[in-house]
Write a protein that binds this DNA or RNA. Structure first.
Lengths: 153, 153
DNA sequence: GTACTTGCAAATCGTTTGCAGTAAC
DNA sequence: GTTACTGCAAACGATTTGCAAGTAC
């Protein structure tokens, strides 16, 4: 939750505009779902988003959350993260970035790297077809899990 | 299915040995499941593996296939592939390699790259914890899907 | 007013599990 | 003989869908 409120409001305005552009109706639920996601750095799953939104919109149903997240992902307004086959997790950050994933607790954190941004599509991959995007994630043990392990040994 | 039969037999022997090492029983079904996977370059899902094995072991149940694949993955004898959240797909290739994934048809192909092997864990990722492994995939449109698109336009 | 959305409940689908019989070691 | 493995059927959990009522535009 280290996202500043100005940043959130900026993103909300951009979101309203993006919806208008696409003929997507700006409903209360949709706004709050997006706000919940864009306010978080945790890459929450549908259920966590639903819980969060219910603090403000107690009557929202899980289906609505699922439907909106799916639709927003199809419109390219959010993305689906997680290589693994756990439940779906979402990300409102659409800038070029990478993920650190903790193999113990499942934490996912964004990071940026100019070096990685500069990687060219490898010729070995280009041989299979036309590359579009390159995804990279670093798996490891996060600081929290590391200290837990240290203290118990 | 470009895997030579000598290669397959080599892998089967190694597999029998790996099972013996771990006290895992070498059952007919387990051998055929592994053979099916190691003979394929398609990164099949559980269902496709089941279909394939049934040509040789008609009575095998889907549960057995699921159970074995899961168990083999836990023992590190095979791996689970696919960043996406479709059904699970498996890979008997345990060498360091990368994937090309077709965004249209879901084709997954292995490729190798010395350049990518040499990538260091980025400092930005190390900040979050102790990195263990780095995964990379290239998404794109495969040759087959490209020609389909070309011919229909 | 119309088309898109919502909330509800029921369905779907891949995957997992409990159990009794069977096979590997 | 013991222990792990198989096949069956039933369960599971995340996600999706059909439908009637509600809301944005």
């Amino acid at each position: 939750m280290a996202v500043s409120s100005e940043m959130i409001e900026t993103r909300m305005s951009a979101f309203r505009e993006a919806c208008a552009c696409r003929g997507v109706k700006v409903t209360h639920q949709r706004l709050e779902i997006y706000r919940e996601l864009t306010s978080s750095e945790e890459h929450p799953d549908a259920d966590a988003i639903c819980q969060g939104v219910r603090n403000r919109v107690p009557t929202i149903s899980r289906d609505t959350v699922y439907r909106n997240l799916k639709m927003l992902a199809e419109h390219g307004l959010i993305s689906i993260v997680g290589m693994s086959h756990e439940r779906l997790r979402f990300d409102a950050n659409m800038e070029l970035h990478y993920h650190f994933v903790c193999v113990r607790c499942g934490l996912i954190r964004d990071f940026y790297s100019q070096n990685l941004d500069n990687i060219d599509f490898p010729a070995e991959a280009v041989a299979f077809g036309d590359p579009v995007s390159l995804h990279l994630e670093v798996k490891g043990v996060c600081r929290t899990c590391r200290s837990l392990a240290d203290s118990s040994s």
